[in-house]
Design a protein around this nucleic acid. Structure first.
Lengths: 348, 348
DNA sequence: CCGAGTCTTTCCAACGTTGTAAAGTAAACG
DNA sequence: CGTTTACTTTACAACGTTGGAAAGACTCGG
């Protein structure tokens, strides 16, 4: 089978511990011995067995990432950013898909699979705030998103309310007054949908605009088809509108599609703004004005925080920092679907 | 730290081997003993240490997947499908991103990280056919894609030439005659770009249409911006065309965007067909006619093949099946960007 | 040439688990 | 009631590695 320290030791004519010492850069090794060992390693093509090393050292050099589904572009791009950030630290990433199913999310948290990793970056979508106790797991955990909050945990998220408010205010500042919203979740308060809807309402209030329930399109899955369906619902209500806020880009793109089918021109008749700044937002027709949520920063911060927590777990942990909630900065990316001076276009 | 067999054994008042036997469903255990042990497991919240189990058994229960980049939707959807297929077999997936960089791809192949997994599903993009010897690695490997072929390896791919030919023939059958192609790679013969361009040319030949080099747009990265740029190049040549074949969906979407900027209507003036059947192809404006390459089948087959190979590696391996090249079936998905009767639309 | 100090190598145990085989116990048979 | 047989539990070693500390070798000063 695979080459082990024993094989190398035999070929080099030394003990396995000496080989181990060479590999681990132990300083006191005679140059002659060192080169003998290195030659044997080269000759046999020895590679350390990371499983054994991990068992012995208690460190796996791997972390787990649990996301709903890689076919959702936001999570695919997030996963890519997490893997890249981990890679920079020499850490590999084991990816789990939960499908956003609460039962499956809880199962992943309790799964013995996690004994293969040093910690978990967890992006829940299905569990409720009441499930927070289930997050008290015996390994380092960093939470993502805004589904569940727990002061006991490190958490990396974004200013959803503020960002959604800024997006809405952007539409208002551009001259729009009747702003539909697509992707709301019935009755949700905590969570992306709840927070972003709140930001939307705050912006309306601040501008003295009335909130019209007929302009709210509901859909649970934040898929394109969901955005399309929610947009159709709003159109069916018959209430006039001159802008749409998609609670994420995928929803906005689905909505844009329906608007076009309905003969409404974007942005001439209706401005559309999204949320996430997906790659594809730049290349849709028209390109999508959206909120950049700082995804890369979130990924990097989540990895750094988790690694710090893992390192602290080994030490006496008395001096470990308290769990913190870290929030990314957002930025509005203006593109064609919602120009900063929309009414000028509309009037043209 | 974590609870081990020893802790459970102590609480239950038995030896650790008995606990191990209970966990592994060894049949000869007295019911009383069994329930004592199970109660202790429950009480302590014992979870087996998979690293130790893996070291002892030589099986990790994990596989690695190396893809270029999760921000490329094709690979994100592929990775999602692979993880789902592995999950069904109780296997976890460690995802590596190579960036399509040949040096990094070779590095991943040789990386000791793979000692943490039982095998690798490898989707190369940068290495050349001449790198095939580097694929002779000491662990089970399943190749994806059409970048490199090696009779020594299991390989799951698709009928690129035939599918591209079918896509082109679909455009021809719809009445188009001047078909541009976007995403070619200068001089490439083996690889997605080379094969698909070949299929395109075969279709032209079979229909007695002339190949016009001015209708070929080149771009190395199959990103949306690449498609946009290649489309601009073709437009700049000034040669007239009435259809575009994007060598993948992303390219086609980028191209569609440029066509619209240039005042050309899709599909009225120009039909557009893509390749990959990404989620977003269904929701672009207009929705994208494309080739479904059987991605899910490819993922499932790759995982099944790898697991079979891993299982065979344990046995005497004499009866292991020979490495095989398995090809997915493709299907043309007709949507708006290229209706089956395009000329009828154009004539209208 | 001896002893102290320093450098270099080795031995042993342990990480948590399971395969092997032996030891112990109970049931069944004559 | 002794003996075979089947059942139940345990001891031990091993997977490949590294931490700790002992053992061995060398250098230097006196």
């Amino acid at each position: 089978m695979a080459v082990t320290l024993h094989d190398v030791a035999r070929v080099a004519g030394v003990s396995i511990k000496t080989v181990s010492n060479v590999i681990n850069d132990y300083p006191h090794i005679r140059p002659a011995t060192k080169s003998k060992v290195e030659q044997a390693i080269e000759e046999l093509g020895y590679q350390p067995n990371l499983t054994a090393r991990s068992l012995r050292s208690g460190r796996a050099g791997a972390i787990a990432l649990a996301v709903p589904d890689l076919s959702l572009p936001y999570f695919a791009e997030l996963a890519g950013a997490v893997i890249a950030a981990a890679e920079a630290a020499g850490i590999v990433v084991l990816v789990e898909q939960t499908g956003g199913d609460p039962a499956r999310e809880l199962e992943v948290l309790r799964s013995p699979r996690l004994t293969m990793t040093d910690g978990l970056i967890f992006s829940p979508l299905g569990i409720e705030q009441s499930d927070a106790p289930a997050l008290r797991v015996p390994y380092p955990l960093v939470l993502l998103g805004e589904r569940v909050f727990d002061p006991e945990h490190d958490h990396v998220s974004m200013r959803n309310v503020e960002a959604a408010r800024a997006a809405t205010e952007f539409l208002i500042a551009s001259g729009r007054r009747r702003i539909a919203v697509v992707g709301a979740h019935e009755g949700e308060v905590i969570g992306s949908a709840g927070f972003r809807l709140q930001g939307y309402r705050e912006a309306l209030d601040a501008a003295g605009l009335e909130f019209d329930p007929d302009l709210v399109g509901y859909t649970a899955p934040w898929h394109r088809s969901g955005g399309a369906q929610a947009m159709r619902d709003v159109l069916a209500h018959g209430a006039p509108f001159d802008a749409v806020f998609g609670l994420n880009d995928t929803l906005a793109l689905g909505a844009m599609r329906v608007l076009q089918e309905a003969g409404l021109r974007v942005p001439h008749d209706v401005s559309v703004i999204g949320f996430d700044d997906l790659d594809e937002a730049e290349y849709s027709i028209p390109s999508l004005t959206t909120v950049d949520p700082g995804r890369r920063w979130i990924a990097r911060t989540a990895v750094d925080t988790l690694l710090a927590r893992i390192a602290a777990a080994t030490l006496d942990a008395a001096d470990a920092p308290r769990p913190a909630l870290q929030l990314a900065e957002f930025r509005i990316i203006e593109r064609e679907s919602a120009p900063a001076a929309a009414s000028a276009v509309a009037d043209a």
